[in-house]
Simulated assay, not measured.
Amino acid sequence: MKLLSTERTDISLLTSDHAENLQRYLLENRTNFAPFEPLRNDEYFTLDGISERIAYATADYEAKKCLLMVVTPKDEQSVIGSINFTNFMFGAFQACHLGFSIDHACQGQGLMHESLKQSITYVHERYGLHRIMANHLPDNFRSRKTLGSLGFVKEGYAKSYLKINGIWQDHVLNSLILPG
């Protein structure tokens, strides 16, 4: 289900219809993403494993806990990126976490910035969230630049924050405060 479009991309809710294209995306970027993600076993990349994660994400979406999306080139089906808004919190906090990735062949073209800008507006308008938090490894300059260009501000530094690529690693903590 397409949720929104930018000049060059379509952004859709992650559904079982995307399983094969998502698998291709993950496999083609496995080496590229490894330094920035938890260790992934082979099951993570199987169609069954992906379909199972999509089913869980669908249930969480329906419960208003998250919004997992895929980015495709305009009017195409191939996945070139993912945008995940997770850990929705309502009430006095009204916040979530943001994670994103883009195909190694599409880096440096502004596609993720374009897609994130529209997606953030969508999440703000649809869910009324006030704070979006996004964290990155200290040496992930691409993510830092992308987040900065979207108005995210560094709020802190967390030692030994997440186990990435098998090692507990520090992270830079960022947030974007939205009006309302």
Rank of each mutant, 00 (worst) to 15 (best):
residue 157 Y to H: 11
residue 113 H to D: 11
residue 129 L to R: 02
residue 114 E to M: 05
residue 125 E to P: 03
residue 171 H to Y: 10
residue 105 A to D: 13
residue 98 L to P: 00
residue 100 F to Y: 14
residue 152 F to P: 05
residue 114 E to W: 00
residue 140 N to R: 01
residue 126 R to D: 09
residue 164 I to H: 07
residue 146 T to L: 13
residue 112 M to S: 00
residue 146 T to D: 04
residue 135 N to E: 10
residue 112 M to Q: 03
residue 115 S to E: 08
residue 106 C to S: 15
residue 135 N to S: 12
residue 117 K to I: 05
residue 167 I to D: 13
residue 165 N to K: 00
residue 121 T to Y: 12
residue 107 Q to I: 15
residue 141 F to T: 10
residue 138 P to Y: 00
residue 129 L to F: 08
residue 137 L to G: 01
residue 125 E to S: 15
residue 98 L to S: 02
residue 99 G to R: 03
residue 130 H to W: 12
residue 157 Y to T: 04
residue 166 G to H: 13
residue 149 S to C: 04
residue 151 G to F: 03
residue 110 G to Q: 10
residue 141 F to P: 00
residue 114 E to P: 00
residue 132 I to W: 04
residue 143 S to D: 02
residue 160 S to Y: 02
residue 158 A to Q: 00
residue 149 S to G: 10
residue 111 L to Y: 09
residue 144 R to Y: 00
residue 131 R to G: 02
residue 136 H to Q: 01
residue 130 H to S: 14
residue 130 H to A: 11
residue 160 S to G: 08
residue 118 Q to F: 07
residue 152 F to E: 08
residue 102 I to C: 07
residue 122 Y to K: 03
residue 169 Q to P: 04
residue 134 A to S: 15
residue 145 K to M: 12
residue 141 F to Y: 10
residue 100 F to R: 09
residue 113 H to E: 15
residue 165 N to Y: 13
residue 100 F to I: 00
residue 121 T to G: 03
residue 116 L to P: 00
residue 120 I to L: 14
residue 167 I to Q: 14
residue 106 C to G: 07
residue 111 L to G: 00
residue 133 M to V: 13
residue 111 L to Q: 07
residue 99 G to I: 09
residue 127 Y to E: 09
residue 132 I to H: 03
residue 110 G to H: 11
residue 160 S to D: 10
residue 123 V to Y: 03
residue 126 R to E: 15
residue 150 L to C: 12
residue 137 L to V: 04
residue 123 V to F: 07
residue 98 L to K: 10
residue 166 G to S: 11
residue 112 M to F: 05
residue 102 I to D: 01
residue 111 L to K: 07
residue 107 Q to E: 15
residue 143 S to F: 02
residue 126 R to A: 14
residue 168 W to L: 09
residue 102 I to Q: 01
residue 112 M to L: 13
residue 136 H to Y: 11
residue 138 P to G: 06
residue 168 W to S: 08
residue 127 Y to D: 03
residue 102 I to N: 01
residue 140 N to V: 01
residue 129 L to Q: 02
residue 122 Y to P: 00
residue 138 P to E: 06
residue 130 H to C: 12
residue 131 R to H: 09
residue 102 I to F: 12
residue 126 R to Y: 09
residue 148 G to P: 06
residue 162 L to N: 02
residue 127 Y to S: 11
